[in-house]
Design a protein around this nucleic acid. Sequence first.
DNA 1: ACTGTACCCTGTAGGC
DNA 2: TGCCTACAGGGTACAG
Length: 293
Amino acid sequence: MPELPEVETVRRGLERVLRDARFAHVEVRRPDLRFAFPVRFAERLAGSAIVDLTRRAKYILASLDTGETLIMHLGMTGRFLIEEAQGRTTPGSYVYAHGANTTHDHVVFHMRSGTRITYNDARRFGFMLLTPTHELSSHPVLRALGPEPLDVQFSAAYLAGRAAQKNVNLKTLLMDQRIVAGLGNIYVSEALHRARLSPGRPASTLADGKGRPLARAHALVAAVKNVLGDAIAAGGSTLRDYRQADGSSGGFQDTFLVYDREGERCTRTGCSGRLRRAVHAGRATFFCPVCQR
DNA sequence: ACTGTACCCTGTAGGC
DNA sequence: TGCCTACAGGGTACAG
Protein backbone atom coordinates (compact mmCIF):
# COMPACT_ATOMS: atom_id res chain seq x y z
CA MET A 1 0.00 0.00 0.00
CA PRO A 2 1.94 2.85 1.32
CA GLU A 3 3.85 5.26 -0.86
CA LEU A 4 3.41 8.99 -0.46
CA PRO A 5 -0.17 9.19 -1.83
CA GLU A 6 -1.35 6.32 0.36
CA VAL A 7 0.36 7.70 3.46
CA GLU A 8 -1.19 11.10 2.76
CA THR A 9 -4.61 9.47 2.38
CA VAL A 10 -4.16 7.68 5.69
CA ARG A 11 -3.00 10.90 7.33
CA ARG A 12 -6.11 12.70 6.19
CA GLY A 13 -8.29 9.88 7.47
CA LEU A 14 -6.55 9.96 10.85
CA GLU A 15 -6.55 13.74 11.06
CA ARG A 16 -10.33 13.86 11.33
CA VAL A 17 -10.30 11.79 14.50
CA LEU A 18 -6.88 12.54 15.98
CA ARG A 19 -6.39 16.26 15.60
CA ASP A 20 -7.14 18.00 18.90
CA ALA A 21 -8.11 14.62 20.34
CA ARG A 22 -6.64 13.14 23.49
CA PHE A 23 -5.37 9.64 24.18
CA ALA A 24 -7.23 7.89 27.00
CA HIS A 25 -5.02 4.81 27.03
CA VAL A 26 -2.94 2.84 24.56
CA GLU A 27 -2.67 -0.92 24.20
CA VAL A 28 0.64 -2.30 22.94
CA ARG A 29 0.35 -6.00 22.27
CA ARG A 30 3.95 -6.94 21.51
CA PRO A 31 7.38 -5.54 22.40
CA ASP A 32 8.37 -4.47 18.91
CA LEU A 33 7.44 -3.94 15.29
CA ARG A 34 10.43 -3.32 13.08
CA PHE A 35 12.05 -1.67 16.11
CA ALA A 36 11.28 -1.98 19.80
CA PHE A 37 8.59 0.41 20.99
CA PRO A 38 9.98 3.36 22.95
CA VAL A 39 10.38 2.80 26.69
CA ARG A 40 7.11 3.43 28.56
CA PHE A 41 5.47 4.06 25.16
CA ALA A 42 1.86 3.68 26.27
CA GLU A 43 2.41 5.75 29.42
CA ARG A 44 4.01 8.59 27.50
CA LEU A 45 1.01 8.80 25.15
CA ALA A 46 -1.77 8.37 27.72
CA GLY A 47 -3.47 11.67 28.57
CA SER A 48 -1.67 13.65 25.89
CA ALA A 49 -3.39 15.58 23.10
CA ILE A 50 -2.48 15.61 19.42
CA VAL A 51 -1.96 19.21 18.40
CA ASP A 52 -0.97 18.56 14.79
CA LEU A 53 -0.89 15.60 12.41
CA THR A 54 1.47 15.99 9.46
CA ARG A 55 3.38 13.91 6.96
CA ARG A 56 7.01 13.91 5.92
CA ALA A 57 7.91 11.48 3.11
CA LYS A 58 6.22 8.22 4.16
CA TYR A 59 6.17 9.13 7.85
CA ILE A 60 3.08 10.28 9.74
CA LEU A 61 3.99 12.72 12.53
CA ALA A 62 1.69 13.34 15.50
CA SER A 63 2.81 16.35 17.47
CA LEU A 64 1.76 16.04 21.11
CA ASP A 65 1.13 18.63 23.82
CA THR A 66 3.74 16.87 25.94
CA GLY A 67 6.51 18.23 23.72
CA GLU A 68 7.08 14.90 22.04
CA THR A 69 6.22 13.80 18.50
CA LEU A 70 4.96 10.34 17.63
CA ILE A 71 6.66 9.15 14.43
CA MET A 72 4.78 6.42 12.59
CA HIS A 73 5.79 4.45 9.51
CA LEU A 74 3.53 1.90 7.83
CA GLY A 75 6.26 -0.26 6.30
CA MET A 76 4.80 -2.50 3.62
CA THR A 77 1.58 -3.68 5.25
CA GLY A 78 0.78 -1.24 8.05
CA ARG A 79 -2.78 0.12 8.21
CA PHE A 80 -5.16 1.77 10.61
CA LEU A 81 -8.72 0.85 11.41
CA ILE A 82 -10.77 3.72 12.75
CA GLU A 83 -13.86 2.91 14.79
CA GLU A 84 -15.80 5.89 16.01
CA ALA A 85 -17.87 5.85 19.15
CA GLN A 86 -21.09 5.05 17.28
CA GLY A 87 -19.40 2.11 15.59
CA ARG A 88 -19.04 3.78 12.22
CA THR A 89 -15.85 3.68 10.24
CA THR A 90 -14.41 6.82 8.78
CA PRO A 91 -14.18 7.21 5.01
CA GLY A 92 -10.68 7.81 3.79
CA SER A 93 -9.00 5.46 6.20
CA TYR A 94 -7.89 2.00 5.25
CA VAL A 95 -9.62 -0.93 6.89
CA TYR A 96 -9.60 -4.67 6.50
CA ALA A 97 -11.36 -6.48 3.75
CA HIS A 98 -14.51 -8.31 4.73
CA GLY A 99 -13.77 -10.98 7.28
CA ALA A 100 -11.52 -8.84 9.43
CA ASN A 101 -8.38 -10.62 10.55
CA THR A 102 -7.23 -9.24 13.88
CA THR A 103 -4.19 -11.53 14.12
CA HIS A 104 -1.81 -8.67 13.48
CA ASP A 105 -3.50 -5.93 15.49
CA HIS A 106 -0.46 -4.67 17.40
CA VAL A 107 -1.44 -1.27 18.82
CA VAL A 108 -4.80 0.19 19.84
CA PHE A 109 -5.25 3.91 20.53
CA HIS A 110 -8.25 4.50 22.79
CA MET A 111 -9.22 8.16 22.54
CA ARG A 112 -11.16 10.09 25.16
CA SER A 113 -13.80 10.74 22.50
CA GLY A 114 -14.53 7.02 22.46
CA THR A 115 -12.92 6.56 19.06
CA ARG A 116 -10.69 3.52 18.79
CA ILE A 117 -7.82 3.34 16.29
CA THR A 118 -6.14 0.00 15.67
CA TYR A 119 -2.77 -0.43 13.98
CA ASN A 120 -2.47 -3.70 12.05
CA ASP A 121 0.75 -4.79 10.34
CA ALA A 122 1.25 -8.37 9.14
CA ARG A 123 4.88 -8.08 8.14
CA ARG A 124 5.85 -5.67 10.92
CA PHE A 125 8.09 -3.53 8.76
CA GLY A 126 6.30 -0.50 10.20
CA PHE A 127 7.30 1.21 13.44
CA MET A 128 6.37 3.84 16.01
CA LEU A 129 8.91 6.10 17.70
CA LEU A 130 8.80 9.07 20.06
CA THR A 131 11.17 12.00 19.96
CA PRO A 132 11.27 15.48 21.46
CA THR A 133 9.53 17.74 18.95
CA HIS A 134 12.34 20.27 18.96
CA GLU A 135 14.72 17.52 17.81
CA LEU A 136 12.40 16.18 15.14
CA SER A 137 14.26 17.41 12.08
CA SER A 138 17.51 15.91 13.32
CA HIS A 139 15.97 12.52 14.13
CA PRO A 140 17.92 9.71 12.40
CA VAL A 141 14.96 8.57 10.29
CA LEU A 142 14.18 12.08 9.05
CA ARG A 143 17.38 14.09 8.91
CA ALA A 144 18.78 12.71 5.64
CA LEU A 145 15.54 12.85 3.65
CA GLY A 146 15.49 14.77 0.40
CA PRO A 147 12.81 17.34 -0.43
CA GLU A 148 9.13 16.53 -0.72
CA PRO A 149 8.42 15.77 -4.38
CA LEU A 150 5.40 18.12 -4.43
CA ASP A 151 7.41 20.98 -2.95
CA VAL A 152 8.81 23.70 -5.22
CA GLN A 153 12.23 22.74 -3.92
CA PHE A 154 11.97 19.56 -5.98
CA SER A 155 12.78 21.11 -9.34
CA ALA A 156 14.52 20.09 -12.54
CA ALA A 157 17.54 22.14 -11.50
CA TYR A 158 17.68 20.39 -8.13
CA LEU A 159 17.29 16.89 -9.55
CA ALA A 160 19.79 17.40 -12.35
CA GLY A 161 22.27 18.81 -9.86
CA ARG A 162 21.95 15.79 -7.58
CA ALA A 163 22.06 13.37 -10.52
CA ALA A 164 24.99 14.91 -12.35
CA GLN A 165 27.81 12.99 -10.69
CA LYS A 166 25.81 9.89 -9.82
CA ASN A 167 26.53 6.52 -11.29
CA VAL A 168 23.03 5.04 -10.93
CA ASN A 169 20.06 4.65 -13.22
CA LEU A 170 16.88 6.72 -13.04
CA LYS A 171 14.87 4.04 -11.23
CA THR A 172 17.43 3.80 -8.46
CA LEU A 173 17.82 7.58 -8.28
CA LEU A 174 14.11 8.20 -7.70
CA MET A 175 13.84 5.37 -5.17
CA ASP A 176 16.59 6.99 -3.06
CA GLN A 177 14.80 8.82 -0.23
CA ARG A 178 17.83 11.10 0.22
CA ILE A 179 17.31 12.45 -3.28
CA VAL A 180 13.54 12.84 -3.14
CA ALA A 181 11.41 11.59 -0.25
CA GLY A 182 8.18 9.65 -0.59
CA LEU A 183 8.33 7.92 -3.94
CA GLY A 184 8.17 4.13 -3.97
CA ASN A 185 8.22 1.28 -6.40
CA ILE A 186 4.87 1.88 -8.08
CA TYR A 187 5.01 5.62 -8.60
CA VAL A 188 8.59 5.58 -9.86
CA SER A 189 7.58 3.16 -12.63
CA GLU A 190 4.51 5.25 -13.44
CA ALA A 191 6.40 8.56 -13.42
CA LEU A 192 9.13 7.25 -15.72
CA HIS A 193 6.50 6.08 -18.18
CA ARG A 194 4.75 9.45 -18.12
CA ALA A 195 8.12 11.13 -18.76
CA ARG A 196 8.95 8.65 -21.55
CA LEU A 197 12.27 7.85 -19.87
CA SER A 198 13.77 4.41 -19.51
CA PRO A 199 14.32 3.26 -15.91
CA GLY A 200 17.77 2.02 -16.90
CA ARG A 201 18.93 5.35 -18.30
CA PRO A 202 21.96 6.76 -16.44
CA ALA A 203 20.79 9.44 -14.01
CA SER A 204 23.67 11.67 -15.07
CA THR A 205 21.97 12.19 -18.43
CA LEU A 206 19.44 14.49 -16.75
CA ALA A 207 22.13 17.16 -16.69
CA ASP A 208 24.48 18.82 -19.12
CA GLY A 209 28.21 18.96 -18.48
CA LYS A 210 27.77 21.75 -15.95
CA GLY A 211 25.04 20.06 -13.95
CA ARG A 212 22.24 22.10 -15.50
CA PRO A 213 18.91 20.42 -16.24
CA LEU A 214 18.18 19.08 -19.70
CA ALA A 215 14.65 18.85 -21.07
CA ARG A 216 14.29 15.30 -19.79
CA ALA A 217 14.90 16.52 -16.24
CA HIS A 218 12.00 18.95 -16.58
CA ALA A 219 9.83 16.19 -18.03
CA LEU A 220 10.69 13.81 -15.20
CA VAL A 221 10.04 16.29 -12.40
CA ALA A 222 6.71 17.25 -13.98
CA ALA A 223 5.76 13.58 -14.35
CA VAL A 224 6.56 12.86 -10.69
CA LYS A 225 4.45 15.78 -9.51
CA ASN A 226 1.58 14.91 -11.84
CA VAL A 227 1.39 11.24 -10.96
CA LEU A 228 1.51 11.96 -7.22
CA GLY A 229 -1.08 14.69 -7.51
CA ASP A 230 -3.40 12.45 -9.48
CA ALA A 231 -2.93 9.59 -7.02
CA ILE A 232 -3.63 11.74 -3.97
CA ALA A 233 -6.76 13.10 -5.65
CA ALA A 234 -7.89 9.51 -6.21
CA GLY A 235 -7.30 8.57 -2.56
CA GLY A 236 -4.18 6.55 -3.30
CA SER A 237 -3.90 3.05 -4.67
CA THR A 238 -5.53 0.01 -3.14
CA LEU A 239 -3.86 -3.30 -3.90
CA ARG A 240 -4.49 -6.85 -2.79
CA ASP A 241 -6.46 -7.08 0.43
CA TYR A 242 -6.90 -3.39 1.13
CA ARG A 243 -10.15 -1.43 0.97
CA GLN A 244 -11.21 2.05 1.80
CA ALA A 245 -13.44 2.35 4.80
CA ASP A 246 -16.55 3.26 2.86
CA GLY A 247 -16.24 0.00 0.91
CA SER A 248 -15.28 1.56 -2.40
CA SER A 249 -12.08 0.19 -3.81
CA GLY A 250 -9.18 2.64 -3.66
CA GLY A 251 -9.02 4.40 -7.00
CA PHE A 252 -5.66 5.05 -8.52
CA GLN A 253 -4.64 1.43 -9.09
CA ASP A 254 -7.06 1.36 -12.02
CA THR A 255 -4.96 3.99 -13.75
CA PHE A 256 -1.60 2.25 -13.54
CA LEU A 257 -0.19 2.31 -17.04
CA VAL A 258 2.79 0.04 -16.48
CA TYR A 259 2.96 -1.27 -12.90
CA ASP A 260 2.38 -5.04 -12.79
CA ARG A 261 1.43 -5.08 -16.48
CA GLU A 262 4.30 -7.13 -17.89
CA GLY A 263 3.45 -8.52 -21.32
CA GLU A 264 0.57 -6.13 -21.98
CA ARG A 265 0.57 -3.58 -24.77
CA CYS A 266 1.66 -0.02 -24.01
CA THR A 267 -1.42 2.22 -24.01
CA ARG A 268 0.34 5.40 -25.05
CA THR A 269 -1.22 6.82 -28.19
CA GLY A 270 0.78 5.72 -31.20
CA CYS A 271 2.78 3.16 -29.24
CA SER A 272 1.98 -0.52 -28.95
CA GLY A 273 5.19 -1.72 -27.36
CA ARG A 274 5.13 -4.81 -25.18
CA LEU A 275 5.55 -3.83 -21.52
CA ARG A 276 8.49 -5.43 -19.78
CA ARG A 277 9.58 -6.22 -16.26
CA ALA A 278 13.16 -5.68 -15.12
CA VAL A 279 14.88 -5.57 -11.74
CA HIS A 280 16.70 -2.48 -10.54
CA ALA A 281 18.24 -2.30 -7.08
CA GLY A 282 16.43 -5.51 -6.19
CA ARG A 283 12.95 -4.21 -6.99
CA ALA A 284 10.68 -4.95 -9.95
CA THR A 285 10.40 -2.20 -12.53
CA PHE A 286 7.80 -2.05 -15.30
CA PHE A 287 8.30 -0.05 -18.47
CA CYS A 288 7.74 0.18 -22.21
CA PRO A 289 11.00 -0.41 -24.09
CA VAL A 290 9.58 1.29 -27.18
CA CYS A 291 8.43 4.72 -25.98
CA GLN A 292 10.62 5.03 -22.87
CA ARG A 293 14.19 5.87 -23.84
C1' DA B 1 32.17 7.74 -0.79
C1' DC B 2 29.47 5.01 -3.39
C1' DT B 3 26.73 0.70 -5.08
C1' DG B 4 24.70 -3.71 -4.93
C1' DT B 5 22.88 -7.53 -2.21
C1' DA B 6 20.88 -9.84 1.71
C1' DC B 7 17.70 -9.48 5.09
C1' DC B 8 13.87 -8.24 8.36
C1' DC B 9 8.49 -10.92 8.43
C1' DT B 10 4.09 -12.89 6.91
C1' DG B 11 0.76 -13.90 3.36
C1' DT B 12 -0.44 -15.22 -1.17
C1' DA B 13 -0.17 -16.83 -5.95
C1' DG B 14 1.36 -20.07 -9.09
C1' DG B 15 3.84 -24.36 -10.57
C1' DC B 16 4.09 -29.18 -9.83
C1' DT C 1 -5.63 -31.16 -1.92
C1' DG C 2 -0.73 -30.09 -0.48
C1' DC C 3 4.08 -28.61 -0.87
C1' DC C 4 7.44 -25.56 -2.61
C1' DT C 5 9.23 -21.31 -4.43
C1' DA C 6 9.03 -16.55 -5.64
C1' DC C 7 7.43 -12.27 -4.72
C1' DA C 8 5.04 -8.18 -2.38
C1' DG C 9 3.68 -0.97 -1.44
C1' DG C 10 9.91 -0.24 2.59
C1' DG C 11 14.19 0.57 4.74
C1' DT C 12 18.70 -0.81 6.68
C1' DA C 13 23.14 -3.25 7.49
C1' DC C 14 26.76 -4.85 5.52
C1' DA C 15 30.33 -6.33 1.82
C1' DG C 16 32.79 -5.09 -1.95
